[in-house]
Design a protein around this nucleic acid. Structure first.
Lengths: 349, 349
DNA sequence: TTGAAAGCGCTACCAT
DNA sequence: ATGGTAGCGCTTTCAA
């Protein structure tokens, strides 16, 4: 059942039927209702391929997922983000094109998507401090929104970012309020933009309390469980080990817990830990970490915002670059509530 | 730059240029080289939208990711699978359409994809024991391949599955060889097909050793860390607790470790654990679990197989239903090697 | 308010 | 081996 068939059945022209179905104003209400009814009755849905050619838009947003050759855990944040973006796409009739490429061919993949006209816009994931993809997409004249930012890129572009600096400044300050002055930071890879911003926040908090950041306590690496484990072990072996740590994600935080357990230590008693993550399902309702805190960043919400912004740009509903900062809250996520000292500090903030 | 422009530049017809570019045999080698050269020089790539309309194929495979309303961890297996499938798609010029829907609207989503002609085929994820999607897709006349199977569906359909039954039979048998006779099973949700097959394997192994399966030791649930934790705690409180367990995934296995740790017990010494999972990155190189074993099921490889099969079906390279079983190996994944008792058992197998 | 017809950019059939 | 041309199924002018 295509438009021609449908219009024949209705005894109307394809033009009118098309207009009726697409909400054009110049169709009489009677006709519109009739058309809609018959369309539904015959289970008509317009052919997406034809529509795309005729309109010149693909109604598709591209997401590129770079997967490195070396086995790297696929970022769990990615899935959450996609879920949020996907919601918005469905609501607006967009499809989501997911391109899995190994990171060497990444540029080629963007280029192909653009030149083939396969997508109307692209979402950039995991920006580096100095990310070449931004210039590439500008060059290709492809609408895009970055999830995060790229500090060294000076041109104007659209982004939606979480306030990573402030999140880590608060997390660190929170621990300082508890009386800590040896606070370690377990961060992501040093060339990632978010990692740089988190470092800045961490250092700012320390400096505000007249603490000189100790390079020995500042760690960078891929955020795996084992990374958390190894780094925590090393930190514990220092002559003057930290008494608290801010951790970039729940995954290394699991490793931290394991390392501490191995040393007979306990989170919330012997080590205060603040983890920056959205997904607390690993720890939720366990009652195991009375002093375990989390910074909620709402990756899923970020996905929604990025998708909306991009669609608005594409459809011209929004002009210049969309730049949006999402603030995060510092929450104590455990059912048993925070330890007493922590609760006191919380109330001060 | 479109085909018309390009053919004008070349002084050839669109037909010839198209043929040259698409590898048709009736073009002279000289022309072909010339065309390819000029195409490259002018950075020509054929418009995907036009191509799709003209050929009647969308060169796109759909994956539907159902996300339930209640916060559920997005299955990490999904990402691995997608990575494998994505490779094959790239190699064959297919795009991957990812549709994120809440599980109530899932059927509608399949229907829309089919009727709009947005995809040439669909991959079905996470089949239930009795999965309605199979009949739906057959009804829609949409080529599809199931990752896994649906035991209660009697019709013939294409699937690629891991031998879950055998994996759990071997894992359980392996533990029995170590002398265990109280072996718990931490399985996935009971209505998932893979969970049923794993249960069958588990029971078969026990029965082969004249052990009557104890319902108290058989647990089903969503595979979260907390699930592993809670279940393990309950198991330890039994009058006659298990001495070993087979676990369905690495995530609950992490919870198991935590529960054991809380009780002063250690994997490999006080509790033998076999976990069925692909991703050992949580534990790799830690040397922490000399007796921790894993069944590698190669989800990524499964993604590749499913994608290839589907493409072969679509292009008619393969006839009837594609049904493929992937075997798994039982491996001791730790750098420190298995504990002595385990090593002995391994050698017998 | 409705309809006829010209594209959108490619493929594929039928000629030559 | 090469070219002319009729679609693919829709949208969108332009005319009525």
């Amino acid at each position: 059942m295509n438009l021609k068939d449908l219009s024949n059945i209705l005894g109307l022209s394809q033009t009118t039927v098309s207009r009726a179905l697409n909400g054009y104003p110049e169709v009489s209400e009677a006709t519109r209702l009739k058309v809609q009814e018959v369309a539904r009755a015959h289970n008509y849905s317009p052919n997406a391929r034809a529509k795309r050619l005729a309109t010149g838009r693909s109604m598709t947003i591209g997401h590129i997922l770079p997967v490195s050759k070396k086995h790297e855990m696929v970022n769990p944040v990615f899935a959450d983000f996609i879920a949020g973006a996907g919601e918005v796409y469905s609501e607006n009739g967009y499809d989501l094109l997911l391109s899995v490429v190994d990171d060497e061919n990444e540029a080629e993949s963007y280029r192909s998507l653009a030149m083939r006209g396969a997508v109307d816009g692209i979402v950039v994931h995991g920006p580096k401090v100095d990310d070449a993809r931004i210039a590439l997409l500008q060059d290709l004249d492809m609408p895009f929104v970055v999830h995060g930012r790229s500090s060294h890129v000076k041109s104007d572009y659209s982004w939606v970012d979480v306030n990573n600096r402030r999140a880590f400044e608060r997390a660190t300050g929170f621990l300082m309020d508890l009386g800590h002055n040896r606070i370690a930071m377990l961060n992501g890879l040093a060339d990632m933009d978010f990692a740089v911003r988190r470092t800045i926040g961490y250092e700012a908090a320390l400096k505000a309390g007249n603490i000189v950041p100790d390079p020995e306590l500042m760690c960078f690496g891929e955020m795996t469980e084992n990374y958390g484990f190894e780094v925590c072990r090393k930190l514990l072996e220092l002559p003057d080990p930290p008494t608290a740590m801010v951790v970039s994600s729940i995954i290394p935080a699991i490793g931290v817990r394991r390392a501490l357990g191995g040393a007979g230590l306990k989170i919330g008693r012997d080590m205060s830990v603040v983890s920056h993550d959205d997904d607390l399902s690993y720890f939720r309702n366990t009652g195991d970490f009375p002093a375990f805190t989390a910074v909620r960043s709402s990756v899923r919400e970020a996905g929604r915002r990025v998708a909306s912004a991009l669609i608005n740009m594409i459809t011209g509903r929004e002009e210049g670059p969309h730049q949006e900062m999402l603030e995060v809250e510092l929450t104590v996520g455990q059912s048993t509530g925070p330890a007493p000292a922590m609760r006191r500090a919380m109330q001060q903030r």
